[in-house]
């Protein structure tokens, strides 16, 4: 039997830090819910309050997570680059983005369909659990980095 050729998107997914250690079968399954997208610099990727139905695996570029301030406008909190994951609100109710996100540079991402992914994770824990752990790690890392920013460790006073 002729071996099925790996799709480019599957290869790209396999090259992303997020999928490290995932089985071939699970990566192939993720690939079936994935698409590719590029953004120019200064493009909005997410807007707080809008429906969260996707997740981005950054391949190249720089995306800033921002919070909107009525007088200061978009205040950047953190930037994410190659190998990072943007967006987990598709995974938790009420499935609305809690922050804005803007590109700082030309950016290339793999987009995962959040609704299909959530349904697949719920229906098949063998597929869903390792992914849930990964998304939990992303959240934990983000919280830890935010705490360090909050303590203002370089302030001499």
């Amino acid at each position: 039997m002729e071996q099925e050729q790996e799709q480019p998107i599957e290869r790209m997914l396999r090259g992303h830090d997020f999928t490290e250690g995932l089985s071939d079968e699970h990566v192939a399954r993720l690939a079936s819910m994935a698409s590719l997208q590029t953004f120019h610099a200064d493009e909005r990727v997410l807007k707080a309050g809008e429906r969260a139905d996707r997740c981005y695996l950054i391949q190249e570029g720089q995306i800033a997570i921002e919070i909107y301030h009525p007088t200061r406008g978009g205040v950047p909190i953190q930037t994410l680059g190659e190998g990072k994951v943007l967006g987990w609100s598709w995974f938790v109710k009420p499935y609305r983005w809690t922050f804005d996100a803007m590109t700082y540079t030309f950016t290339r991402v793999i987009v995962l369909d959040g609704v299909r992914l959530r349904e697949a994770m719920e229906a098949d824990p063998e597929f869903g659990y390792p992914l849930a752990v990964r998304f939990m790690e992303v959240c934990a890392e983000r919280v830890s980095h935010s705490r360090l920013q909050m303590i203002d460790m370089f302030d001499p006073h």
């Binding site: 800033a64 950047p76 909190i77 920013q149």
Partner: peptide, 12 residues
């Protein structure tokens, strides 16, 4: 650790 939008480098 903190910057306005004028800073186009890494933030974090």
């Amino acid at each position: 650790d903190r910057a306005s939008r004028d800073w186009r480098g890494r933030l974090g």
